[in-house]
Write a protein that binds this DNA or RNA. Structure first.
Lengths: 333, 333
DNA sequence: CTGAAAGCGCTTACAG
DNA sequence: CTGAAAGCGCTTACAG
């Protein structure tokens, strides 16, 4: 079914049919009724590709999400969705794998949908290099992009370094001296390296020594990753009394590993998470964690993007506050 | 940048440029080199909408996923992705909200991408009614669509009724007599009503009585939903010794609720889950649950769909086996 | 209010 | 091997 067939069957020209479909231009009631009837009879839907080819106008705000299984992202996305629609834009989410190239995907989307702006959720910046040539406004969420120095790329992120440092202070203040850390590979994951620096700075402040070889073990940011890393860590650092995990899922995996080794959390070993996802409130024990403010991350990134779209403002790099949420997984030593 | 500009700048016609881009038809090495150079200089990418408008051919297999936060779906999707690509098709995932209309979305995708086939993940069938008029092959995963009686709509699902009945048998055999159930609203959620019937049939088999008003409480399929439903249930059924939850997340929420009421799992109350998602292995205690075979769900749905696409086979409705995975959350009474 | 026509950026027989 | 041209299904000034 094409617009031409609808036109001939209804006895009007394609221009009039088009005007009816898009509800613009003036059309007589009679023509509208007749044409609508034919359209409904055939369940006609205009060809989207032809329409876009012809119109060539911007459409919506695209959100590229890296990694499917991230509970923090889920709440961020939900709130973004709302905020974007409130501002009168369509919200177009795209999910790609953890390892995919988000910049390439952005180019594809640009070509296909021509959005007003792009939000990158979960980028680790490695694909934003010198030949980044996307000129529409965009914002990277959860990573600080100020070093990129791109005129049209803003960012909204949590201060990983200070959050990790704060968490370490907290454990040290509880009397823990033997603190191990599990997280991602610091050579590949920027949040991991920043958080590691944060932990280290807290140690230095307390005149203690943090030895990456002994005090740190890494794995994937997942339940299994945390489980494995905790086992590794315990092996080389058996007298630890606290573990800082760089994500809540890792923390849950670590608690499981401890349990299998006959160690209870928090009685024997305290464990802390990072992110503040929903499940952190429901496990037994509930997690002490750094709550990333999903609301604020979502809201500010949308506001910054739309401001940039509508008023052409320059890129800004915003740091969103974190909250230490004390749960039941930590105790005095 | 359009193909026309590339053509004029390279000194060739648009036809030749098109042939170079798509690597079909014969082109001289000289022309190819010259044209590629211009394309790269401008970072030219052909307009996808124009291409699709012109070609009008099928492309890929679309997967419509209802609900973002479903760990079972995540593993199913991952495996589907692999299977679809192995068979030589592109995999195009679309995520929609729990409450969105997946059939409408399918029409939109049909119009926009013209896929060879569609996979529906997490549909509850309510939008598949008499004016369902999508004629390409599709398969609904996790719900039995045999009653729909649509020639081109297959389904792959777990036998919810029997799985729930089996789980109930298991608890009764452990000596539990006071068993409560938490799940979704049976009037709205087909899996909930099927599982409830399954529980009931096990009770009948054991010459016991299941009273929906007393033994059942419902909420959303989430941590919070399980937490709240468990509290409701305990209130009206304080002497229960076991809870069957209709999802793992609900089970985790329930265990948390019990804990806050001073009841330990499994010492005081046994709790079972449903789905067999990853986290069920990592909580303390690990969950006794019905493991839905994500591998098999994914593989069979892709096989059935592609068989239907390539050989025009009729719709089939397949039931995939379940496995009772015993964990640490259940014990003898 | 309405229709004929141009044109969006491609691909692909067709002719040379 | 290559180019000119038709045409995919739309929208939108333009003219009436």
């Amino acid at each position: 079914m094409t617009i031409k067939e609808i036109a001939s069957e209804s006895g009007y020209g394609v221009g009039t049919v088009s005007r009816v479909i898009n509800n613009n231009g003036s059309v007589s009631d009679k023509a509208r009724a007749r044409i609508m009837k034919v359209i409904e009879e055939h369940n006609y839907q205009p060809n989207e590709n032809a329409k876009r080819l012809k119109i060539q106008s911007h459409y919506g705000i695209a959100v590229i999400v890296k990694g499917r299984s991230n509970a923090l992202f889920e709440s961020v996305i939900e709130r973004m969705h709302q905020a974007v629609q409130t501002k009168g834009y369509q919200f177009i989410p795209y999910y790609i794998d953890q390892d995919d190239n988000e910049v390439e995907k952005a180019r594809e989307i640009l070509n296909e949908r021509n959005p007003y702006g792009i939000i990158f959720l979960g980028s680790n910046l490695e694909f934003f290099n010198k030949d980044y040539n996307i000129s529409i406004p965009s914002v990277i969420v959860t990573a600080d992009a100020s070093e990129l120095n791109l005129k049209n790329v803003s960012s909204v992120s949590v201060d990983d370094l200070r959050a990790a440092s704060f968490m370490t202070d907290y454990l040290l203040d509880l009397g823990h001296k033997n603190i191990g850390v599990i997280g991602g590979n610091p050579d590949l994951s920027r949040p991991s390296s920043m958080r590691l620096i944060g932990v280290n700075s807290s140690f230095i402040k307390h005149r203690m020594n943090f030895d990456v070889n002994k005090n740190y073990a890494y794995g994937r940011f997942s339940l299994r990753g945390g489980y494995m890393a905790a086992r590794d860590l315990i092996k080389k650092f058996p007298d630890l009394t606290a573990i800082i995990a760089m994500s809540d899922l890792m923390a849950i995996g670590a608690i499981r590993a401890l349990n299998e080794l006959g160690k209870k959390c928090p009685e024997d070993i305290s464990v802390t998470g990072f992110d503040g996802i929903e499940i952190a409130d429901y496990t037994v024990p509930g997690l002490t964690t750094i709550r990333q403010d999903a609301d604020r991350l979502a809201l500010r990134s949308v506001e910054i993007l739309i401001n940039s779209i509508e008023n052409g403002t320059e890129a800004v790099h915003e740091i969103v506050p974190y909250i230490l949420k004390t749960g039941e997984s930590t105790g005095k030593v």
